[in-house]
Design a binder for these strands. Structure first.
Lengths: 233, 233
DNA sequence: GTATCTGAAATCATATACGATTTATCGAGT
DNA sequence: ACTCGATAAATCGTATATGATTTCAGATAC
């Protein structure tokens, strides 16, 4: 049995899926970017068939839109779409955090605190990108032990959605970061004290809702002309 | 411009999707049913390529599992899977109902009451199938006005999931139906009184959680294989 | 009787080919 | 200069073909 045939390499459609997904996730393919089947196929040195399958999957996941006889592009996220995503995330992340709480060890909580501390340190000499990164890391610690894989999956999807907007105009609000760090500490304390699941859930939910509200207020105050006309194709 | 070419008929992959989806929904394809590409293609008189795409989509939606070089089958739902689905539905349906509440008209509430009344009448001379049908209808009235399409979509998916188990052993508990009807009335009253969103949400969630608990208790009492070690709530 | 092997049949995965549709280009007419 | 229309180019949608993998039935060995 030769070593090179032991592992049945991933299928080409899977390969195509990862290829595209990777690029959407890290921002190389921005919302609106056009996914030309033949072009991607050539880059991967496969035929268009597996690429189409990959795109169908991405479409079902909501990351890509695919119009008949026109083609696929990375899903554009309009402002209302974004608000809906945030609201959904508030709900499912709240639930995930509450369900996860009983399984968190003192070590987990310490880790969460540590991350939050690093976030606090980025407050002076502020780096939004770094802050966002740590923010996900912090929340991940809290919800990742959620024993319900469906809910956990929904949380991941929500965060991915938001990540696609990393560089968008409405992903950040100046004053909010400091409050955020304080709220993080509060959530950790609740979990530590073994608070009621519902209390934890609502705290986590409020944390996100507050971010959303802050963004809305900020935008209203700054009268953003248009929510950033995304570079298409 | 000839009449027959005016409408650009749905694509074949779309057609295949609907074909399969329909059959899963109405139970002709039960969980575990094997979806053979060539066979479905022949039935539809198309090639396998669009059928594959349809199956990829169904896979992403969780209705179908698709294993490399082995093929696709309607997703099997194990007991823990079912519990997770119910729990997720409890969360998202609660949120959807609360978000929907402000948009419900008196006519909507009347309709809900009417449906619930019909459910009550099926209690004597009990028909589980009919009851389940009305149950979805009732809840649909309450959550369908939810302005957040993401959350609404999650609710639909959850119900679809449950519908796939229509005939399964753990889809029904004898005593539960009567309580259910009473809880329905309570939820309608809350909405009618313009109760706090959170109160509505939790009432709707409890209603579903109670169903779940009843099922677990029933199974435990009847010594079903595994009593489900899942941490519900 | 059970286990293992072997070849055939079924089925999957993907490449290639080609017609259909959309989009872009460019010149004629106003 | 602008619109319109025709043509070309790009791209999509799907059928077909073929090699690869898995499954299964029957044969053989123990």
């Amino acid at each position: 049995m030769s070593a090179e045939t032991l592992r049945p390499v991933e299928s080409k459609s899977q390969q195509a899926y990862r290829f595209i997904r990777e690029r959407i996730d890290d921002g190389r393919y921005v919302p609106g970017y056009r996914l030309v089947l033949g072009q991607i196929a050539k880059e991967l040195d496969v035929s268009v068939v597996p690429v189409r399958e990959a795109i169908r999957r991405l479409e079902a996941e909501g990351l890509v839109t695919f119009e008949r006889n026109v083609g696929a592009q990375v899903a554009l996220i309009k402002e209302t779409e974004y608000l809906h995503t945030m609201q959904t995330l508030a709900v499912v992340e709240g639930a995930a955090t509450a369900l996860s709480a009983p399984y968190l060890t003192p070590a987990d909580l310490e880790r969460a605190r540590d991350i939050n501390e690093r976030m606090r340190r980025t407050l002076d000499d502020f780096d939004p990108h770094r802050f966002t990164e740590l923010n996900l890391e912090f929340h991940s610690v809290l919800f990742e032990e959620c024993p319900n894989p469906h809910i956990l999956d929904l949380v991941h999807r929500g965060w991915n959605r938001m990540r696609m907007l990393r560089d968008s105009s409405f992903s950040f609000v100046p004053g909010r970061a400091r409050e955020s760090v304080a709220e993080h500490e509060h959530i950790v304390e609740l979990i530590e004290q073994g608070a009621e699941p519902l209390e934890i859930e609502l705290a986590a939910r409020r944390h996100r809702t507050a971010t959303l509200d802050a963004m809305l207020a900020y935008q209203a105050a700054h009268k953003h002309p248009t929510p950033a006309p995304v570079a298409a194709r």
